[in-house]
Design a protein around this nucleic acid. Structure first.
Length: 293
DNA sequence: CGCATCCCCTGCCTGC
DNA sequence: TGCAGGCAGGGGATGC
């Protein structure tokens, strides 16, 4: 369940039981996810206190008191679930009861907070790594990442600059994590619908010194920010019954304007368009062919 | 260099 | 019911 709003929702869900807690036990149930776990993975985590739980793009970052950072990525199908230590614990009111591990539970953290945090990932496109805090930004996973879409850097002027000379579709531009980091297939579609821009439009048409470019770039920047903020406020999107770490369902899927709504009427007032599905670079794109130009 | 394609993996849904 | 095919919220390697 992994675009920026979902990862941010996971972060907020894990924060109460992880921040300030000591990792007492680490259980790794297979040698790798998308890539092998780093050397001495368990030893470098065991006994460490989690100073803070942060996020960069779609990565969760657990800052440890050792100066290292546990980096976690959910891939396509990764999720966390929190279990209480026992039924008499205060945690039992909020989290799942302690239960036997399930299929695809790959990593288990038992914490001094009493919580058990379990990483489950059927497709194993997720990853875990450990990186030095100093130099995190220049480490391989992060060196090429683009700006945070909810940070101050994202505005129309920045979008215009990113679009300069790019002979790719706007959809491809939004999915390019080296430009803006954290948007995935759903929110790319939704942001473009809000901005009334066709996913097939050439990115460079939003670059400066072109007719209408500035207003379109501004609209796109505003739409990206708005849709991500609204999605976070709704607890992210829960597709195929995916759940947040505490078991709650996100609600933003009910607010999709186009994603997975092929054949339905466009929700824009006075637009008579029907949502269409197409494929761009191997992934589904949903859009309204009438109001998105 | 930028871009399109393919691949990693499992599960679920559809249609035959 | 079984099976094949297609599809899924990500991202990296490859080849043109």
């Amino acid at each position: 369940m992994p675009e920026l709003p979902e990862v941010e929702t996971v972060r907020r869900g894990l924060q109460p039981v992880m921040e300030g807690a000591v990792i007492e036990t680490v259980t790794v149930r297979r040698p790798d996810l998308r890539k092998p776990f780093p050397p001495r993975f368990r030893q470098r985590l065991t006994g460490r206190r989690i100073v803070s739980l942060g996020r960069r793009a779609k990565y969760l970052l657990a800052d440890l008191d050792s100066g290292e950072v546990l980096v976690m990525h959910l891939g396509m199908s990764g999720s966390f679930r929190i279990e209480a230590d026992d039924d008499t614990s205060p945690l039992a009111a909020t989290y799942y009861r302690r239960a036997p591990l399930k299929a695809h539970d790959h990593v288990v953290f038992d914490l001094s907070s009493g919580a058990r945090v379990i990483f489950n990932d059927p497709r194993r496109f997720g990853l875990m790594d450990i990186v030095q805090r100093d130099g995190l930004e220049t480490s391989p996973l992060f060196a090429r990442l683009g700006i945070e879409p909810l940070g101050n850097a994202l505005d129309g002027a920045h979008v215009a600059a990113l679009a300069e000379g790019r002979v790719v579709s706007l959809k491809a531009l939004l999915l390019d994590q080296t430009k803006i980091a954290g948007i995935g297939n759903i929110y790319a579609c939704e942001a473009l619908w809000r901005a009334r821009l066709s996913p097939m439009r050439l990115a460079e048409s939003l670059a400066t010194a072109r007719g209408g470019a500035t207003v379109r770039a501004n609209r796109l920047a505003d739409s990206i920010r708005a849709v991500l903020e609204e999605a976070i406020a709704a607890g992210g999107s829960s597709l195929r019954d995916h759940r947040q770490a505490d078991g709650e369902l996100g609600m933003f899927q009910h607010h999709f304007a186009v994603y997975d709504r092929e054949g339905e009427p466009c929700q824009r007032p006075n637009c008579r368009g029907i949502v269409r599905r197409t494929v761009q670079s191997g992934r589904s794109t949903f859009y309204c062919p009438v109001c998105q130009k």
